[in-house]
Structures are given as C-alpha cells and as structure tokens.
Computed example of a mutant assay.
Amino acid sequence: MKILVTGSKGFVGKNLIAELKNSGYEEIYEYDKDTPKEKLNDFTKKCDFVFHLAGVNRPEDPKDFMKGNYGFTLELLEKLKENQNKSPILLTSSIQAELDNPYGKSKKAGEDLLFQYAKGNNTEVFIYRLPNLFGKWSKPNYNTVVATFCYNIARDLEIKVNDPQVELTLCYIDDVLKEFKKALKNKPSKNGDYCFVPTTHKIKLGELADTIKSFKNSRNNLKIPNMENPLVKKLYSTYLSFLPENDFSYELKMNVDNRGSFTEILKTEERGQVSVNISKPGITKGNHWHHTKNEKFLVVSGKGVIRFRKIDEEKVIEYFVSEDKLEVIDIPPGYTHNIENLGDKDMVTIMWANELFDPENPDTYYLEV
C-alpha cells in the first residue's frame, strides 16, 4: 500500500510515519510545506490512502487559518480528482470545528469540503475531530498545553495557570496512532458522520500542572508516579521526552561508611522502594528482623551468603549467592537475617522493601543471627 501523509513533519505526522514504518509499510509519501509543489501531483497519482494531517494552528494573520485549513485541502482534493484517484482520505480536524472562531471555522470548512468531495466522487472519508493531543515530539507553545508545561517545568521555567479548575480532554498520540491504523484497514471508530479516538482522558488544568511538577520533583524524593493511572503513565513518558539533552541523568545520595554504601534508587507509595547495597570484602550487614516489613535481595556482583534465624530458635539457614547465578532471596518477617561478602571484591545487592522507610516506625530490631 502506498500512503500519502500531508503535514509529515508535524507532531502527528512524525509519530504516524514512524509507526507506519514499524508496521511494515514501506512506500510512504511525505508531504510538508517545504516539499516541492510538483511532488503533490506525483503523490496523488500513486497513493492508495491519504492521511491529511496538514493544517495551520497559530498563524500570524488569522486569514491564514482558512488558507491553510481549507485552501490546501481544496488543492489536495483537486489533485486527487484530476488524477482520478479515489483513495480513502483521513482528515484530522478539531473539536474546535464546533466553535465560532477563525480556527474552528476553517476546520469546519475543510470538513464540509471533504464531505462534499466524498459524495461527488464515491470516496471513503474518515474525519476525526481530535481533542487536545499530547506525546513525544509535540511542540511547546504551539501544539498543546501539555508540551508547554513539560518543556518549561523540565527547565525550571515559569508556567501560567489562569484557571486551575478548567477541565481538559486529552488524547495521547499512541492512542491516536492505534485508531488511525484501524482506519487504514477500513475499521474506524465512528459516531454518525465523524470518527473518534476511543481513549481520552479528562483532567483539570491545575491538576495537570501539579502532576507534571511531581515528575520534576521525583528526582529529589525518588518517588515514581503511580503508573496504574493510565493518564499519569502517558504524561510521564511525555515529560521525559522533553528533558534537556544535558539533563538525562541525576545523582543519588550514597550513604557511605567503611563497610560500603547503601543508596535508595526509587520509591512508590503503593509498592515500596528499591535500593542498592554495596558491601566490601569480609563485611557482614544486617543482623536485624521485622514484624511486618519484608524484602527481596538480589546479588548482581560478587559472592556472599545470606543467613536467617527465627528469633525464637537456634537453627541458622544459609543461602549462598553470587553473580554466577542470579536468584532472588525473600526475607520473611520474624527472621533475623544478615548478608556477608565472601569474595575478594565489592558485593553489589539490589534490595526491594515492600514499604517506604518510616523513621517514626522503622519496624527494624537488632538481633544477631
């Protein structure tokens, strides 16, 4: 299948083309505002499907709304008709097509033009009135407030929240691509004359700002956002895509002494925390037990032994561990336990605890194994 994508360098276009290539489509005709005009004639002769994504969002002159959103649509349809090409056409419109403003009017004009073309030429058309889109490769101060918030917060720049109670309807780019691939196979989600992306999310503007700020703060408090929330998961991926290229890394606080070090890596309110423990040769750490807290130990470098003893018994249980055989050791409550480095190099252990450390209630009691 030969696919024409107008607006190929835009936010949706870049993501769509990448996904089409991932899906095995090889003949993709990319058309953008800097593409030579004669290419449009060539592409409209050959294409089997058209993703018409090109449009104008923020022109300097409001008159350019109609020129970009209606005028170019007319030019595209005339070329298809001239070349007797009845390829299905997918148009990205906007929920603002229902509003009485220059942008909305231009989008509605483009829709009406496409509907008329479909009737007159017996062509299948899919018109999507999209809400606020977000995701990687979107432009700050252009495509969406999500992009602007992510870009600015990642760089400690000011953001503007005029009314925190305003509710937004957001749609993630990957969900858009999933729906567009269905339309490509003539299986779009439809409601009357219009198509729609089934998965959207609602959030208030103030909550959106606070959520993205929490992503920034997670480097300090190490708290990973709640990935069970699908919107939070998608927003976090989007935020990371806006990190400055010189700011992908961040330092962790290492608690160092003569025995080695202990460093917290990440925390979650729901599923505890992950840390890394480094023990020097001959060092034993631990010798404590817990009422309820439980842990998992995984030695990834070096070799050692993990010992357990029920606090009211004398029997000692030993598990020998090393980098040669990665295995997780569960640390049950009610057993005092320790870990000793038996090798001649530092032993590195990844540790998970089922709850965040609470200095007011540490649930940790010293007792030699």
Results as ranks from 00 to 15, higher is better:
residue 31 Y to D: 11
residue 287 N to V: 00
residue 315 K to V: 00
residue 75 E to P: 12
residue 271 R to N: 15
residue 179 E to Y: 09
residue 324 D to S: 10
residue 133 L to H: 15
residue 44 T to A: 14
residue 49 F to Q: 12
residue 74 L to A: 06
residue 175 D to A: 13
residue 56 V to R: 14
residue 222 L to D: 06
residue 244 P to H: 06
residue 345 K to E: 08
residue 72 F to N: 15
residue 303 K to S: 02
residue 71 G to W: 13
residue 32 D to L: 01
residue 88 P to V: 10
residue 232 V to T: 15
residue 123 T to D: 12
residue 327 E to L: 10
residue 202 K to L: 15
residue 140 P to N: 05
residue 60 E to G: 15
residue 307 R to P: 00
residue 72 F to T: 14
residue 109 A to T: 11
residue 106 S to P: 10
residue 221 N to I: 08
residue 347 M to E: 01
residue 278 I to R: 03
residue 334 G to F: 03
residue 19 E to C: 03
residue 352 W to S: 11
residue 99 L to R: 08
residue 208 L to E: 01
residue 163 D to M: 04
residue 269 E to Q: 05
residue 367 L to Y: 00
residue 160 K to P: 01
residue 218 S to M: 14
residue 317 I to M: 02
residue 26 E to W: 10
residue 327 E to V: 10
residue 106 S to H: 14
residue 32 D to V: 02
residue 201 H to R: 13
residue 242 F to M: 07
residue 126 F to Q: 15
residue 119 K to H: 11
residue 90 L to F: 03
residue 290 H to T: 05
residue 211 T to F: 07
residue 300 V to G: 01
residue 121 N to D: 15
residue 306 I to F: 01
residue 64 D to A: 14
residue 150 C to I: 08
residue 301 S to F: 07
residue 132 N to G: 06
residue 161 V to Q: 05
residue 332 P to E: 09
residue 163 D to S: 08
residue 192 G to M: 12
residue 89 I to Q: 09
residue 130 L to T: 12
residue 155 R to S: 06
residue 81 K to L: 11
residue 225 P to Q: 13
residue 35 T to C: 07
residue 153 I to A: 12
residue 97 A to V: 06
residue 353 A to Y: 10
residue 95 I to L: 09
residue 16 L to A: 01
residue 290 H to C: 09
residue 338 N to W: 10
residue 67 K to F: 06
residue 305 V to H: 01
residue 145 V to N: 00
residue 128 Y to A: 15
residue 17 I to D: 00
residue 85 N to Q: 02
residue 153 I to P: 05
residue 20 L to S: 00
residue 104 G to T: 05
residue 274 V to D: 04
residue 262 F to E: 03
residue 329 I to H: 10
residue 151 Y to G: 09
residue 235 L to F: 05
residue 128 Y to E: 11
residue 239 Y to D: 07
residue 149 F to H: 01
residue 207 E to F: 13
residue 13 G to D: 02
residue 289 W to H: 03
residue 68 G to H: 10
residue 207 E to Q: 13
residue 21 K to V: 04
residue 227 M to C: 00
residue 246 N to I: 00
residue 79 K to W: 12
residue 20 L to T: 00
residue 8 S to H: 03
residue 313 E to I: 01
residue 234 K to M: 02
residue 100 D to K: 06
residue 119 K to V: 15
residue 345 K to N: 08
residue 50 V to A: 11
residue 195 C to Q: 14
residue 354 N to A: 07
residue 275 S to C: 12
residue 198 P to Q: 11
residue 247 D to A: 15
residue 219 R to D: 09
residue 80 L to F: 06
residue 8 S to L: 08
residue 358 D to C: 14
residue 46 K to N: 04
residue 368 E to C: 02
residue 21 K to I: 03
residue 199 T to I: 11
residue 222 L to C: 11
residue 315 K to Y: 00
residue 36 P to C: 02
residue 179 E to Q: 13
residue 354 N to H: 04
residue 220 N to I: 08
residue 341 N to H: 02
residue 14 K to M: 00
residue 78 E to H: 04
residue 219 R to S: 08
residue 191 N to H: 05
residue 90 L to H: 09
residue 116 Q to S: 09
